[in-house]
Amino acid sequence: MFNLKYKDDLYKIILSVFVLSVISVFLIAVTVILFYSYPAIIRYGFPFLWVKEWNPPKEVFGALTFLAGTFMVTFLALLFAIPFSFGIGIFLQEYCPLFLRGIFTVIIEMLAGIPSVVFGVWGVLTIVPWLRESVEPFFDRHFSSIPFLKVEENIGYGILAASIVVAFMILPIISSITKDSLASVPKIAKDGALAMGATKLDVIKDVSLPYALNGIYGGIILGFGRAVGETIAVVLLIGNQAIVPKSLFSVGYTISAVLANTFTFAVISPIYASAEVELALILLAVSLIINIVGRNILNKVIGGRFNRSQFGGG
């Protein structure tokens, strides 16, 4: 017969092993990445971040083109996704009839669950032709003098195509966090404004959004984290050329896309592989920082719901 205390300890040990194994996998991964990127870090130093050329045969490696592509896609995707997400979040929480809210919420969450390669295929089949047939000719006719809007090759693939599809992918994250943050605004705070004769719009503008703002920031940051690491959809859409994009319609390359496309044959040359692992290290660092910051903000909001201000307590 088992002693209860002994049984408890046994569970504790088993569970601890599970937890420790997850943590150690993470630590091992980080260590391996650091270990393999070390030769490139030593050889190329900080200029790795701003050298444009990426030439494996000559062993010249600079990450600038990929960094530029990554941040352009991320930035544009956020730019497209944020206004829509706010609209969706505010609509679902404040205006949508209850029976529809459930349906819409499920649809948006399903959007989040679609594998990214499916988004990529969809982008190739719809967004790329649309850009090539309609959008690019239009911009070519009317805005060709504006550098950032210049159409270089009218092929549909490029930064814009990738950004639009990534925007769809981060839309569910930002809109559902916007909705949840608005839902966490204490009812009594909204009632206070309504009782003064505020309209629904006044309440959203002056009470709900200020209350929910930190949570919404957290949602944006998580969306950023997703966008910065998005791979397969981007590989299919961005055009995959190591150049610094000069226009919305340029082709480009991102860190995750170059790793997905070339890492399998980069391993034949130690320094080529090391340079690519250093790219992975940069991506890992950026997304870790972003996630930590985002989660901290979200936790603060959840903690903030129970602070003194809502419960008197003089």
Binding site: I188, D191, G192, P210, Y211, G312
Partner: peptide, 21 residues
């Protein structure tokens, strides 16, 4: 007009609910 009605009626709630202002 509900807005006008509520201007004429002040309301104080169970727990203090100042606006985030």
């Amino acid at each position: 007009d509900v807005v006008e009605l509520r201007r004429n009626i002040g309301m104080v709630f169970q727990s203090p609910n100042p606006f985030p202002k």
